[in-house]
Design a protein around this nucleic acid. Structure first.
Length: 314
DNA sequence: AGACCAACCTGCTGGC
DNA sequence: TGCCAGCAGGTTGGTC
């Protein structure tokens, strides 16, 4: 479900409300959600209990809460995960998996005082872990530490080991665009596969890939190695435009499965040009949007603006 | 090394 | 009403 804009909205919400809070108690209601923590749920809870939140960082679709213990609570939302703040007495969500009780010691704003941080996840493709933060060669998380969505306030030069292979995202000012373009053109694959490859550029998922390809007027199967440098850069501009637009509207929600930390939906779904719009007119030319099965999922595109690839450089 | 796909889960919708 | 196929915003690990 959540792609970069949705994860960033969650990260910023957490940064706003939980920095300075102390973990009072941890309850793991479904062990599968902490399956990445090899030492098990009891150790998971013990490592968190008593820790104080220092910052909230992100790279691609991974986010982590930095703790004063030198470790971090790492989270990935998978397809259906949510991190929400609730009053402790609030009724348990149907798919509540982990409850983390926070105690602010009186230092937080009243809205966050004595809240639960809850991990809710229907399908459990997502999960939580408690991990060490290790120094990295590439100089920092690439995530954003501020409370405003997308505002660049870099955290320290360390990462959870599980995140080391994830590339920087298109909105990251320290993204090495020249190197990305070079890697992109060396790939021998289709342009949508490349967009979805988190080790090449991170944060792009099925929705924003289709939307960016529509903006750039590219068919999903266009070969990466036939693209020119300016062609790759044009596509990156389109990705940035779509993501920035989504961020400004609080992300994309088709239903209650995607919400921010306060349980509110974003409304970028109203701005989507092609995703989920099979048969509806292309906003640019009116041609009915088509849906193809591709990579075991759906690809939406305008058959007129995004014709199937032909030979030649572009 | 790089490309590609099945598997991991639950729940909802639509067709028969 | 029931059953079943198909589908959903992601990542991983395995094969080739």
């Amino acid at each position: 479900m959540p792609e970069l804009p949705e994860v960033e909205v969650v990260r910023a919400g957490l940064a706003r409300w939980v920095i300075g809070a102390r973990v009072d108690a941890v309850e793991v209601l479904h062990p599968r959600v902490v399956r990445w923590h090899e030492a098990g749920p009891v150790d998971f809870a013990a490592r968190l209990t008593g820790a104080v939140v220092r910052d909230v960082a992100r790279r691609g679709k991974f986010l982590w809460i930095e703790l004063d213990t030198g470790e971090a609570l790492l989270a990935h939302l998978g397809m259906s995960g949510q991190l929400v703040l609730q009053p402790p007495g609030a009724e348990a969500e149907r798919h509540l998996r982990v409850r983390i009780s926070l105690d602010d010691g009186g230092s937080l704003s009243s809205e966050a005082r004595g809240r639960d941080l809850r991990f809710v996840d229907q399908r459990m493709f997502g999960g939580l872990d408690v991990v060490p933060l290790v120094p990295t060669a590439d100089g920092g998380p690439g995530g954003r530490g501020g409370a405003d969505p997308g505002v660049w306030t870099p955290s320290g030069p360390w990462l959870p080991p599980q995140v080391a292979h994830i590339a920087r995202d298109p909105l990251d000012p320290t993204l090495d665009e020249k190197a990305l373009v070079a890697r992109w053109r060396r790939r021998r694959t289709g342009v949508k596969r490349a967009l979805l490859d988190q080790t090449l550029v991170s944060g792009v998922g099925n929705i924003y890939a289709d939307e960016a390809l529509w903006r750039a007027r590219l068919h999903y199967a266009r070969p990466t190695d036939a693209m020119t440098g300016p062609g790759v850069r044009r596509l990156l501009v389109a990705v940035r435009e779509v993501m920035a637009g989504a961020l400004a509207k609080g992300g994309t929600s088709f239903d209650s499965l995607y919400v921010n930390v306060n349980g509110e939906s974003g409304y970028f779904d109203r701005s989507l040009a092609v995703y989920g719009r099979e048969g509806l007119p292309c906003p640019r030319c009116g041609t009915p949007i088509r849906r193809d099965k591709f990579m075991n999922r759906s690809s939406y595109y305008c058959p007129r603006d995004q014709p199937r690839p032909r030979a030649g450089r572009w």
